[in-house]
């Protein structure tokens, strides 16, 4: 049966002629397999035009280059020089997010009580994020971008709710992972940022990361006194690292910091310190100097932990993470509602 179409036809596939079969088809199959067997000892499949040779990539040692477009989880950008975050809390990403895992509160000027184009707290539930990249696409200020770091496996589920301090990455980091993409939007982004900085005051809009970055640069960081702060330094340095060979070191650093945080948490922070941190972490009380946050943090939790609970909460040891997460979510959502009016 042959049916003619506009361009092309329907044709019946050839099932082959019935013939005496003494295993010749099986021998052909064996031949194919043994050829692969021998070529796998001599060749490595490097380019897509080859069809034989070992194509295993021995992952932790060998890594495939990631294309610029690669998207894993969203991160927030801040300017290297001024430390100002690009985000203005316009809520575009929160609205477009299909699984609705982005939450944020807008910063308020403590003197006037008016909202400022900066973000007070930003939270992404990495565990439910589906890496679609719509947030990065929709962001008019190029403040939210998709990261290339995919080695985030953890057994700490609550730690997958990531807050601003952990989301923040310097622009220079994004430039290393996606140079052409950043070059496309660079001018517009900086222009918009300049406009927004004018409307911010004090420490509003300053990245918590930016505050620790100079500390890392200072030689003082090398002192043994900064023992707990060391993971901080490594972690902050991490985003600058080229996403290539250093990946495993970076992962190690992250692991270390998570562990340090867990240990600190298990030990239980001194109540007074916890109080203090709570005060500094209060989302509305942004007038507190970021330096204070930075100072308080190593004492209470030992390094920037991946777990957001440690970071801002200074949670008493008996509070479970899940409860804390619920509370946080509730407060942020109510805050959002209130602000939207």
């Amino acid at each position: 049966m042959t049916v003619e179409f506009d361009r092309g036809k329907a044709y019946v596939v050839d099932r082959g002629q019935p013939k005496l079969r003494a295993g010749q088809g099986m021998i052909a199959g064996l031949d194919v397999v043994i050829r692969h067997f021998f070529s796998a000892f001599t060749k490595k499949l490097e380019t897509p035009d080859e069809t034989s040779g070992v194509f295993t990539v021995q992952y932790p040692e060998e890594r495939l280059a990631m294309p610029e477009a690669f998207r894993n989880f969203p991160i927030l950008l801040f300017d290297d020089t001024t430390g100002q975050e690009l985000c203005t809390s316009c809520f575009q990403c929160e609205r477009i997010c299909p699984p609705q895992v982005i939450h944020m509160t807008q910063a308020v000027d403590p003197t006037t009580g008016k909202p400022v184009p900066a973000v007070a707290e930003f939270m992404i539930e990495y565990d439910a994020c589906m890496s679609c990249g719509l947030c990065a696409e929709v962001c008019p200020f190029d403040a939210i971008k998709m990261d290339h770091d995919f080695e985030l496996a953890t057994d700490d589920r609550a730690g997958m709710t990531v807050r601003k301090a952990d989301l923040d990455r310097p622009v220079s980091y994004y430039e290393t992972i996606a140079p052409t993409r950043w070059a496309e939007v660079k001018d517009g982004a900086y222009k918009k940022l300049q406009g927004n900085i004018k409307r911010r005051s004090g420490s509003i809009g300053l990245s918590p990361r930016a505050a620790t970055a100079p500390k890392k640069a200072a030689p003082a960081a090398a002192k043994p006194a900064a023992g707990v702060a060391k993971p901080v330094a490594v972690k902050t340095a991490m985003p600058m690292a080229a996403p290539g060979k250093n990946m495993s070191e970076e992962k190690l650093a992250r692991l270390l910091s998570i562990r340090a945080a867990n240990v600190a948490k298990a030990g239980g922070a001194a109540p007074a310190e916890a109080e203090e941190v709570l005060a500094t972490a209060d989302t509305d009380d942004v007038a507190e100097a970021p330096a204070a946050v930075a100072a308080a943090r190593p004492v209470s939790s030992g390094g920037i932990p991946f777990s957001a609970d440690n970071l801002l909460g200074g949670v008493p040891a008996n509070t479970t993470m899940a409860e804390d997460k619920v509370e946080r979510l509730k407060s942020i959502r109510s805050g959002n509602l209130a602000r939207r009016g």
Partner: peptide, 13 residues
């Protein structure tokens, strides 16, 4: 697809 040439293979059994 109407600008492209291709055939439709069909089976007989």
């Amino acid at each position: 697809y109407n600008e492209l040439d291709f055939d439709v293979p069909i089976g007989s059994v």
